[in-house]
Design a protein around this nucleic acid. Structure first.
Lengths: 159, 159
DNA sequence: TAGCACTACTTAAAATTTCAAAGAAGGACC
DNA sequence: GGTCCTTCTTTGAAATTTTAAGTAGTGCTA
């Protein structure tokens, strides 16, 4: 396999993939104790922070990095459990918005301390400030770039 | 939401989650051009590096961070496509091993350059050496710790 | 060497995710 | 106002993943 990645970067990539996989698995498992998946939790957080505690489906999908149909399913499931409600959008009748319910907010408030503790113990407590700064810089830059690239590719052409 | 995570670490966590999600999505999408999922590719890599190009199901599952039944499905699917073969283990008849086929090796050789280029362009080309070193250190440590924690929790008790 | 607890893996059914079409509005143009 | 193209979201079927049992085989203990 001709190495198109130098050994340092290859090791970096592998460590990142494996550790991230383990971390996500662990965080999900901890969250399950509060009856939520990570996706559930993430939806609740985003809605709780949004003005009027509601977001358009498209906006939510984009922030969660979910496909539209995955989000439809996700929100339907949360709706069945009473965590969110769906309302059709007043100004654009094609659209609909997910709205946080009181029960949803409650569920978030219940789970948040455990979840944040889980993030601390599994990841953050082991990082010093310099490492936190490095990760933040790297991943914010990466996220911005990938987000921009996706927008560009959905736009007609750049010839 | 009482912040059990200071703002810097919260921002770090969010950036990490979102960028990682976008990155995995992108890498998967690129790999699909060669007819492989990331899981397929990862299996092929691990088998190609193993002695006699074969690994026990359990070992493979542990390295991929897959549940046993997910791996059973994954290997069955790859077997249907001729990328791997399954052989029952000579020394422990409960076990079976996944074995790389010639076609599997070919598929890996075909896909590898594209995949590695994809990792470079989406991630590595944007990182300087210090950042690579930092990520490697952080994620190797994290991976080791989470792996050890999992082993410990599957072991009876520690009283 | 029978009994029992445990390990490795598979299977079956349910839940989730993807993929490929829808449907239902908006908006531009004539 | 009637086409045509695009966007926002949902649907339905297929593929994948999880969850809960099941099947064998191992190996300790008595």
């Amino acid at each position: 396999m001709t190495e198109s990645l130098d050994p340092e970067r290859m090791a970096c990539w592998r460590a990142y993939i494996e550790a991230s996989q383990r971390l996500f698995t662990q965080i999900e498992e901890d969250l399950r104790a509060d009856g939520l998946s990570f996706a559930d939790y993430h939806v609740l957080v985003l809605l709780s922070e949004a003005p009027r505690q509601r977001l358009r489906m498209g906006e939510l999908a984009s922030r969660l990095v979910f496909s539209p149909s995955r989000l439809t399913y996700q929100i339907s499931a949360m709706q069945r459990r009473g965590l969110v409600t769906r309302q059709s959008c007043p100004d654009d009748r094609r659209g609909s918005e997910a709205v946080l319910t009181a029960a949803g907010l409650l569920a978030l408030r219940d789970a948040a301390p455990h979840h944040l503790a889980s993030v601390r113990t599994h990841l953050m407590d082991d990082l010093d400030d310099a490492e936190v700064a490095c990760l933040t810089r790297v991943f914010e830059r990466l996220g911005r770039r990938l987000h921009a690239a996706r927008d560009a590719s959905s736009t007609p052409a750049d010839n």
